[in-house]
């Protein structure tokens, strides 16, 4: 971000940047920077809090009126409200279909499909309330997401609408759509809109059938004789601290 600010300013465009990593701004020294003490992924601090966001935006924009250039780095002193973390003893309010830690692929994919249906009710409610969704970047319809992953787990290459996106990239976009669907469904439930990213990842990768399917897919990839399948399934991104599976 600091580099981009420098290049644009060099091209005659006044810039002001929000920074999440103060050390990077100190090193790159862009013209105007507001460092904010917020979680990575939340540069404006808090979702659904217009007043909080507005204050951050205004603080960043007001740096454009500071005369003491060419480098201004200001700290934003207001913390964002806390989110629920693993240490808080949080538990998902839904009763998800039970899944064995290891076992046959058939029951696992069946549990995954059932779970997707269960999530769908809350997801649809979330979309209705918010008027938007972040699911869909993969280009696949929601109904096709689980089938895509289950086909891969069965050792076959899924059919895709277009070949414009490399399959390795598509697999991760599909996986991200599924994670987003679960997250949007969960955070739509009463009192769950403050679940933190780490807690959500813990829940997804250790308690849901979807998470188990992702682990199974990665594990199966290393056993494939087909090099393409091996590359595709091996590329599936899982947080390093959770990569060993449930």
């Amino acid at each position: 971000m600091g580099g981009l600010a420098h290049y644009l300013e060099h091209a005659g465009i006044p810039t002001t940047s929000i920074s999440l990593i103060r050390e990077h701004s100190e090193r790159m020294r862009p013209p105007r920077t507001l460092w904010v003490p917020f979680e990575l992924g939340r540069p404006l601090g808090v979702p659904n809090d217009a007043a909080f966001q507005r204050a951050v935006v205004l603080a960043a924009l007001q740096l454009l009126e500071v005369e003491d250039g060419p480098v201004v780095l200001q700290d934003y002193a207001v913390e964002a409200p806390a989110v629920i973390t693993s240490a808080d003893g949080w538990a998902c309010p839904l009763n998800l279909p039970p899944v064995e830690a290891a076992g046959e692929i058939g029951p696992l994919t069946t549990a995954f499909q059932q779970e997707m249906q269960q999530m769908r009710s809350w997801y649809d409610l979330a979309v209705s309330r918010r008027g938007s969704t972040t699911v869909g970047a993969s280009g696949l319809h929601i109904e096709a997401l689980a089938d895509f992953i289950c086909t891969l787990l069965a050792g076959r290459i899924p059919q895709v609408p277009t070949a414009e996106i490399p399959l390795v990239r598509r697999v991760n976009l599909v996986a991200d759509d599924i994670r987003a669907l679960y997250a949007e469904a969960l955070t739509a439930q009463p009192g769950q809109d403050v679940v933190g990213a780490d807690q959500l990842a813990d829940w997804f990768y250790t308690e849901t059938a979807a998470g188990r399917v992702f682990h199974a897919l990665r594990a199966a990839g290393s056993n494939r004789e087909d090099a393409e399948l091996q590359a595709i399934t091996g590329s599936l991104a899982v947080p390093a601290r959770l990569a060993s599976g449930a």
């Binding site: 979680e39 990575l40 992924g41 939340r42 979702p47 991104a237 390093a240």
Partner: peptide, 14 residues
């Protein structure tokens, strides 16, 4: 996987 996505999922303004 290194940053929060739930904020954006709830509100693009974040």
């Amino acid at each position: 996987q290194n940053f929060d996505r739930t904020g954006f999922q709830q509100d693009w303004n974040v």
